[in-house]
Every structure is written in structure tokens, then in C-alpha cells.
């Protein structure tokens, strides 16, 4: 038994901090992509022609039923074998974004379906076209009503972004692994990384509460 010694942690904090920064960057970028793509999927599933709709539904069904880690392996180790070489960082961001876009799409689809039909009818009778109505009337309201549910997804996304370390992206977990390979102190550094995720999580929850309050006020 090796015992614990946290005194060596501060020395490596700059390196860990770099990983922390990349975790924030990857999470924010993937969160934005997952919301935009999620709304795109939701609109396709609801309104597009069957030729587009069914492939997208099949894709959503596949991505909902399989683990993120498997999807990352497919994108990073798989696509390169058929000549599509995506760098690790982008593979990670694409994987995270698509994985959560599928869940967001489900939330948005339900959000749009639960809107009062009168909203669409009123807009159409005022002369808005079908897609104009969707973009200016339906989408903004659906976005507003789904803030809490999408927020929960973003909390999950932040934590699951740790999985992209497995394809070699130098985020928080990966930088902890680098330090551990030098110091042979797994417990200390994985615990440090976990504590940092915990703090990030608290910050994200506070931000989401702020957004929810703003949205409530705008009603």
C-alpha cells in the first residue's frame, strides 16, 4: 500500500489547468453544436420529406441506443480506415455534439409538438410562410420552453466530455493521466480532476439557473 500524498499536486497544477481549459473549450463548442444540430434534426423529423426524414430518424435511433465511447471509436479509429481522416480534437467535438444533438432533438421535438397550434395558425393567417412561421414563431418558443431539459443535457455533456480523453485529446482527464504516468500517483490526480469537474459543474448549474430566470422573466 502506497498511501496518499497530496503535497505533489500543486507542482503539476499548471499542466492540469491546461487540460481544464480544453475541457471547457470542448464542452462549450460541443454544447453549441449539439443545440443547433439538435434543432435541425427536430425540424427535419417534424417537417421534412420522408426521403430526408427517415434516414435522420434511423441515425437518431442508432445514436440513442449506443454508447458515446463506441461512437467516438467509430469516428476516430473507424472513419480513417475508409479514408476520412478527422483529427482527434474534431472527432471528439463531432462525437460529443452528435451524441447530445440526438437527445436535444428529442427534447425540441416534444417542445414544438406541445406548442399551441394557434401560434402557427395566427402566424400563417398574418401572412408568414410555412418556414418563416417555424423560424420566427415556433423555434424561439420551443427553445425557451425547453431550457431546463436542455440544461440537464448540457450538465451531462460536461461530464461525458471526459470520455474524449480516450481518443487522446489533451483535456482534463488526459492531462491527469499524463501527470500520473510521471508520478505514479493515480488517486491524488484523478481526485484532483474530479474536484475540478465538480467545480465546473457548480458553475454550469449557476449559469443555467441564471438563464432559466431570464427566460422566465421574458414570458
Amino acid at each position: 500500500m502506497q498511501g496518499l500524498d497530496f503535497s505533489i499536486v500543486p507542482e503539476y497544477l499548471p499542466l492540469i489547468g491546461k487540460g481544464l481549459w480544453w475541457t471547457v473549450v470542448i464542452s462549450v463548442v460541443s454544447a453549441l453544436f449539439s443545440i443547433v444540430a439538435g434543432m435541425g434534426f427536430a425540424l427535419i423529423v417534424l417537417y421534412a420529406s420522408p426521403l430526408v426524414r427517415y434516414p435522420v430518424r434511423l441515425f437518431m435511433w442508432l445514436f440513442m441506443g449506443t454508447p458515446l465511447l463506441l461512437q467516438l471509436f467509430l469516428i476516430y479509429f473507424g472513419l480513417v480506415q475508409i479514408g476520412i481522416d478527422i483529427p482527434a480534437l474534431w472527432s471528439g467535438i463531432i462525437g460529443l455534439s452528435l451524441h447530445f444533438a440526438v437527445y436535444n432533438a428529442d427534447i425540441f421535438r416534444a417542445g414544438i409538438a406541445s406548442l399551441d397550434k394557434g401560434q402557427t395558425e395566427a402566424a400563417r393567417s398574418l401572412g408568414f410562410g410555412a418556414w418563416q412561421t417555424r423560424f420566427y414563431i415556433v423555434v424561439p418558443q420551443a427553445l425557451r420552453n425547453t431550457v431546463p431539459a436542455v440544461g440537464n443535457m448540457m450538465i451531462a455533456l460536461l461530464k461525458e466530455s471526459s470520455i474524449v480523453s480516450m481518443i487522446g485529446i489533451a483535456e482534463l482527464v488526459h492531462s491527469a493521466q499524463l501527470v500520473i504516468s510521471e508520478t505514479y500517483r493515480p488517486f491524488e490526480f484523478y481526485l484532483t480532476a474530479a474536484a475540478l469537474y465538480y467545480v465546473l459543474n457548480l458553475i454550469l448549474e449557476a449559469v443555467l439557473r441564471g438563464i432559466e430566470r431570464k427566460v422566465e422573466l421574458s414570458r
Partner: peptide, 13 residues
């Protein structure tokens, strides 16, 4: 905290 780190903490730590 991420489940991945919980697994690592138990297995490696």
C-alpha cells in the same frame, strides 16, 4: 463528477 473518473479512482487509485 464523471463516471469515468469514478471508475479510474477505484481501479487505478
Amino acid at each position: 463528477t464523471p463516471a469515468l473518473l469514478q471508475i479510474f479512482l477505484l481501479y487505478f487509485g
